[in-house]
């Protein structure tokens, strides 16, 4: 059952990811990205990350993607022009990317040769209570710094969107 669920959501994530890259209209890409994020939220649940799964849906698929769709609609972004791929990119790009992926997969198989399979419910440390305790004890300073970062980002966004820069 766990493997079946993994396969289903992994397939959704990969198909939506390919669709994101292939589509030429940004709104199709945005909707594909929402699909990837939803599938990843289900995978987080399988891995025992209740809080992270909820945050993924609320923050990523909810807030950030709405911002993206809003900007796409606001700018009335159309299909992008057919791009001219340089010849070395056409012949070297795919093999290099496959090599990159192969190296990552190889490292993954090396560092986790035979670990116990992922069973739903085997890890209970991802609840909101656990995350909150960790966030306000061990990771208190990074958490507070994060709030400063968010404040700076808000100010920066307002300044950038308001002023005419030339």
């Amino acid at each position: 059952m766990d493997a079946l669920l993994f396969m289903i959501f992994a397939a959704i994530a990969v198909i939506c990811g390919i669709n994101l890259v292939v589509q030429t209209h940004p709104i199709s890409s945005a909707l594909s990205l929402v699909g990837v994020m939803g599938a990843l939220a289900a995978l987080y649940l399988l891995l025992g990350g209740e809080f992270i799964a909820a945050a993924q849906l609320v923050v990523y698929a909810g807030a950030i993607m709405v911002l993206f769709v809003f900007v796409i609609m606001l700018l009335n972004a159309g299909t992008e022009k057919k791009l001219a791929i340089r010849p070395w990119g056409k012949y070297l790009g795919a093999p290099l990317l496959l090599l990159f992926f192969g190296m990552m997969a190889y490292v993954v198989q090396r560092i986790l040769p035979e670990s116990s399979p992922v069973v739903f419910g085997a890890f209970q440390g991802g609840t909101a209570a656990e995350i909150g305790r960790s966030l306000f004890t061990v990771y208190l300073l990074p958490f507070e710094v994060t709030s400063v970062l968010i404040l700076i980002a808000i100010l920066g966004a307002i300044v950038l969107a308001r002023k005419e820069v030339d």
């Binding site: 766990d2 992994a10 993954v108």
Partner: peptide
């Protein structure tokens, strides 16, 4: 019945 964690990491590499 269940997949090892390396499959998750491979999916991460694909994405």
């Amino acid at each position: 019945a269940a997949v090892p964690p390396s499959w998750y990491l491979t999916l991460s590499a694909i994405l």
